[in-house]
Computed example of a mutant assay.
Amino acid sequence: MTICAYVTFDDPDGNDDERELVLASWREAGIEGRAVRWDDPEADWSAFDAAVVRSVWDYVERRAEFVAWAHRAGSVTKLLNPAAVIEANTDKTYLRDMGVPIVPTHWSSGDFPQWDEYVVKPAISAGAKATIRTSDRAAAKAHAAKLEAEGRTPMIQPYLDMVEAEGETSLLYFNRVLSHAVRRNPMLAPGQTQADLARAELRTPAPDQLELAEKVLAEVPGDLLYARVDLVRLPDGRPVLIELELTEPYLFLSHSEAAVGNLTRALGELL
């Protein structure tokens, strides 16, 4: 029997509501799945046919340790997604090297741009931690300078009203094949709660969004069990990349009847 690790973290609050869906689907496909913490010192990663990185949501404050773990685990089993992908993707400066249109981004507190409203966040972050939204240019500049003083790379972007009008579109790919897409709630809209952020609705991507998503994936070589391509439209209507999630994205598996089966089938293909 194929044995795969579902790589997670110490999650006392049970935030990962996709884990049981995945493990059940694996069982039906003849794959024995075991949830294992990435930082479990007793884990023997060589005992698994593959280790699937999923809800490792505590890595942000321990990124160097996490990346080192990924390379160690990837040296003794098939790590999905691979360690090199994880190392690059956990620092959002990768966006500077993408050969596709991205949300306009300034990467330092110097030569500060003039926008009506700002989003300022660190390049290594998750869940909007250390992120502010403000129309005060001085406050945005001060937050960027604070991040730099802490040894972090700031990302300064314009706040795009389209995230509240049309919403963000997330396209979910399993082994580079589109599974489903959703319209996500904007993280920084006024009055949003944590529960709101988990809500989404199925969406049929427009042709220009599909075209851009395919170009985004073409920028990353090698095996990709899962990829979430997050897009938004600029005021002129052009779609641009917000983020390419290749490490621990929420996959909105419960939003599409076929999604979890698509993920399991993709895992079988890569094994």
Rank of each mutant, 00 (worst) to 15 (best):
A29Q: 15
H255I: 02
P104W: 10
R63C: 10
Q194S: 11
A218T: 02
N262S: 15
R27H: 08
Y250C: 10
A189G: 08
E164L: 03
A47S: 15
A195C: 12
L95Q: 00
P186T: 07
N81C: 05
V119R: 00
A43P: 07
V216C: 02
V120W: 01
T247G: 04
E248G: 06
A198C: 08
P235N: 14
L231E: 05
A83W: 02
P101R: 01
L217N: 11
V163P: 01
R228T: 06
Y94Q: 00
L224C: 05
L212T: 07
I102G: 00
D136C: 09
T90I: 05
A43M: 05
Y226E: 00
S179P: 07
E211A: 10
R37E: 10
A73W: 00
I31T: 14
R54V: 03
A259G: 10
A140I: 06
V53P: 04
L225I: 13
D40H: 10
W45K: 03
Y6V: 11
E150I: 05
A149N: 06
R37N: 15
S170E: 05
Y118T: 07
H106L: 08
Q192E: 06
D236G: 07
D44K: 14
D16P: 01
G30V: 12
R137H: 12
F66H: 01
D196H: 10
T131M: 11
L270Y: 10
R184Q: 11
A47R: 12
A206E: 15
V7R: 00
E201R: 15
P104Y: 08
Y94A: 00
C4Q: 03
V103Q: 00
V260K: 00
V85P: 04
D230T: 00
V232H: 07
R233M: 13
V22L: 12
E211V: 02
V260M: 01
D40I: 08
E42M: 07
F48I: 11
D39K: 02
S125H: 01
V232I: 13
F48P: 02
A83I: 06
G167Y: 02
A88E: 12
E211K: 04
R199H: 13
A35V: 06
G222N: 10
K146G: 15
E257D: 15
G30F: 09
S75F: 09
Y118V: 08
A149K: 10
I156P: 04
I242Y: 04
L217I: 13
A51K: 08
E32T: 09
L263K: 07
A64N: 06
M1A: 15
A213G: 05
S125K: 03
R37C: 11
Y159E: 13
Y59A: 03
L231S: 06
D136P: 10
Y250R: 11
A149T: 13
V232C: 09
M98R: 03
K78E: 14
H180E: 00
F9S: 14
A258Q: 14
P158Q: 12
L178F: 04
Q157W: 02
L171F: 02
A64W: 01
L197N: 03
V182I: 15
S254K: 11
G33I: 06
W115G: 12
P221K: 01
L225K: 06
R265K: 13
L178E: 04
I132S: 13
K146Q: 15
N15L: 12
V67K: 07
F112A: 08
E248S: 07
R34T: 12
